[in-house]
Amino acid sequence: MSRDFVHESRPGRVVFAVGARTRLPEEIDRLGLRRLIVVSAPTHKDLVAELSDALGGRIAELHPHATMHVPVAVAERAVARARQVGADGCLAIGGGSAIGLAKAVAKDTALPIVALPTTYAGSEMTPIWGLTSDGRKTTGRDPLVLPSLVVYDPELTVTLPPRSSVTSGMNALAHAAEALYAPDGSPITALMAAESARSLAGALPRVHADPRDIGGRSEALYGAWLAGSVLGATTMSLHHKLCHILGGTFDMPHAGTHTVVLPHVLAFNLPAASQARSALKTALGATDPASHLFHLAQDLGAEMSLKALGMPDDGLETVVEQVLAAPYANPRPFTEADIRHIVGNAFSGAAPA
């Protein structure tokens, strides 16, 4: 078999260990940073206080104002504060909202990012930024927003509730699944994506059964790291397009939306992506990956209906219009009728077909 591919490795340092947060001061010193602006959601107040105490005088500002989908106004305020306090780096503590806000700061200021993830979102491993304005989410790629340092500590995910853990993990699994049929994938990204899917699918039932299972948490975070890495290295397809539209337009929960949509897009795409289908069958130990992921998430308590997550009854027309206005690369061409079928099933909570 002949091979034809391009693979580009991303810069950045990853520290992964149980208790890795204790290494944060020395790792920040290694980067030479002295005046950090710390961005987080208000819900991480206690963790931010703990880490800030350890970092001492390296903190210039605490900015606990991260919100879902990174509204432009929120990003502008964070950028302004970073400049006002003379920050030389941005420390993001939390999930995709905090890391997304740090990226918005870095995009406009070129400050290096240090990320301490507390979920399985994977954004910390990508050069992808996203901003929401007037009900529309805009995304782009810029090497400035790729974190210089990511510290993964599985203990920081222990307080993530079981249902949130499941949807966060399914969000990560979506990155891996779409990387398997990405037009710019490589043998390396394919290996990483398959290993990510295997790790996450095996870890989520453990985490759901016992949120304090540190082995399960480590395996899930490992899978999320791999998923984020392939998200940053490849072009995502229809699934991510739909989720960006749904989240940005209707302010729907990011991870929950990914969880609902993924099985339906896979049911549509995998018949046209034989290598991806084969890889997912092996990774998941399932003959029908789309159905398997739907029932896995459902059995673990995830909500599987877009309607229940907040999509309005008349929202389908808006979704169809936006998808068709700016098509993504996808292994299978899609029509308006296809989008209506995929989103309609996801809206009602029906099993993928």
Rank of each mutant, 00 (worst) to 15 (best):
G56M: 05
A233P: 00
G32E: 01
D53C: 13
V265P: 01
A78W: 08
T282M: 12
T67D: 12
R34I: 03
P333F: 02
G96F: 03
W129L: 04
K241G: 12
I93C: 03
V85Q: 14
D210A: 14
E336R: 12
G223F: 00
P147C: 05
L284R: 09
G228Y: 04
D142H: 06
I188T: 14
D251I: 08
D46C: 05
A297H: 01
S52T: 15
A276P: 11
A177H: 10
H239Q: 12
G344H: 04
E155I: 01
P162L: 04
P211R: 15
N345E: 14
A92T: 03
P352T: 06
P64M: 06
G95T: 05
A297E: 00
L55E: 06
T249E: 14
M311Q: 11
L284C: 07
A98M: 02
R81I: 15
R83D: 03
D299F: 02
P205A: 06
L144N: 11
E124V: 02
G130Y: 08
D4R: 13
L238D: 02
S2N: 15
P154W: 07
L55D: 03
A353N: 12
K307P: 09
V48D: 10
A297Y: 00
V319P: 07
G310P: 09
L242Q: 08
A17V: 05
V320H: 04
H264P: 00
A201Y: 02
R217C: 10
E336N: 02
M236H: 13
A224P: 00
S165R: 10
P271H: 09
A179T: 07
S97T: 02
G95E: 05
A286T: 06
V15M: 01
S40P: 09
A106I: 06
L204I: 14
T249N: 10
A98P: 11
E178T: 13
H65W: 10
E178H: 08
T43K: 14
S186N: 05
